[in-house]
């Protein structure tokens, strides 16, 4: 039987339609030997002694945005959570919650995107689930992915090891994902189009770990941007972070659009960038290593760990003034006059 052109409640019900969706679409899309038996659970040998395990849900609206889609995001998000924990991502799960009446062609496109990006990131989708809810009970499509990765022996990421003088490094230009999705959702007419930076980071992190540099912490500045991850790191510590606005890599077009909208690049999400806190003497060398990787071409030092003020993030502004970088406030809303 041919697949109809809309997702219906039957596709999530354990019926023939559901089975066909899995066999005709998901299996070929994610093709691998662990998924193929379609058992209730994937079974595999432990890929290492020390494992990392993470999960994330994706509810982005719109489903497609310049530079990506919810499927690519669902792969990269979980891959990156593992990567910045110092792990090597290996297996992913992938579960869909679909609002009935979603175009099957849309779902196909997203499944294709997941398969493609899993392949690029070198991970296998080994288990999953599909649920369909009545129209109005979800917004088109939500995806959850969980991931398992192996952690190298001797990895010692910890904020406890951070010291005054350590460098803060960013792997490239910031705020692109947040702005691209905001512009797509609000139909802001920004031209030329701004693209999300959504990309897997595991190639980059592998190279960084291999360099042997004294990396104390890594984070990916997704929701809330750098402002959120750096505040999270500094909170309650007996050190603070000082950033230099003039060093922040922001694409000229992004910077211009943010100026007009009154938004702060520090509080907008990236989905293909990481920031790292690194021992002072290894910092320059590590930046060199990062720059040789496609995901780290515009890596640079953007600040340092300082003794005072503690527990805070401070910005030396372009004009040479100083101000606090606080947690971002709510959803970004452009100013009114």
């Amino acid at each position: 039987m041919e697949l109809k052109n809309k997702i219906t409640l039957e596709h999530g019900s354990g019926s023939r339609e559901a089975r066909e969706l899995i066999s005709n679409l998901l299996l070929p899309g994610f093709k691998n030997r662990y998924l193929a038996p379609l058992a209730d659970a994937a079974s595999f040998k432990s890929p290492g002694d020390r494992l990392a395990f993470t999960t994330d849900s994706f509810v982005v609206s719109p489903l497609f945005f310049p530079g990506g889609d919810i499927g690519k995001l669902a792969v990269c998000g979980t891959v990156n959570d593992l990567a910045v924990a110092g792990a090597r991502p290996i297996y992913l799960s992938c579960s869909f919650i679909i609002e009935e009446n979603l175009d099957l062609s849309v779902f196909k496109q997203i499944v294709h995107s997941i398969g493609q990006w899993a392949k690029k990131a070198g991970v296998l989708i080994v288990t999953g689930d599909t649920k369909v809810v009545e129209a109005g009970n979800a917004d088109k499509l939500y995806i959850n992915t969980a991931g398992i990765g192996t952690v190298p022996d001797g990895l010692a990421f910890s904020p406890e090891r951070v010291r005054t003088g350590d460098a803060v490094i960013i792997s490239g230009t910031i705020a692109e994902h947040g702005l691209a999705v905001l512009a797509a959702r609000e139909e802001l007419d920004i031209s030329p189009q701004l693209k999300s930076d959504c990309a897997p980071l595991n190639g980059l992190t592998e190279a960084m770990l291999k360099s042997g540099a004294d990396i104390k912490m890594m984070r990916d500045p997704t929701r809330g941007g750098l402002a959120a991850v750096l505040n999270e790191l500094a909170e309650g510590r007996n050190w603070g972070i000082e950033l230099l606005e003039s060093r922040l890599p922001v694409h000229a077009r992004v910077k211009a659009a943010l100026e007009i909208l009154g938004l702060d690049p520090l509080s907008l999400a990236s989905e293909g960038k990481l920031c790292a806190i690194v021992g002072e003497k290894d910092a320059e060398r590590l930046v060199g290593v990062m720059k040789r990787e496609p995901a780290g071409k515009r890596a640079r030092i953007i600040g340092r760990v300082v003794r005072e003020p503690r527990s805070m993030v401070i910005l030396e502004t372009e004009a040479g003034g100083r101000r606090i970088v606080d947690w971002p406030r709510g959803a970004p809303i452009p100013r009114i006059c």
């Binding site: 702060d264 910005l315 030396e316 502004t317 004009a319 040479g320 003034g321 100083r322 101000r323 006059c337």
Partner: peptide
């Protein structure tokens, strides 16, 4: 003007 207020703070002018 509120936009001046925000700009003064965002660029850290008081510290200068």
């Amino acid at each position: 003007c509120g936009t001046h207020t925000v700009s003064i703070f965002r660029s850290g002018l008081k510290s200068l």
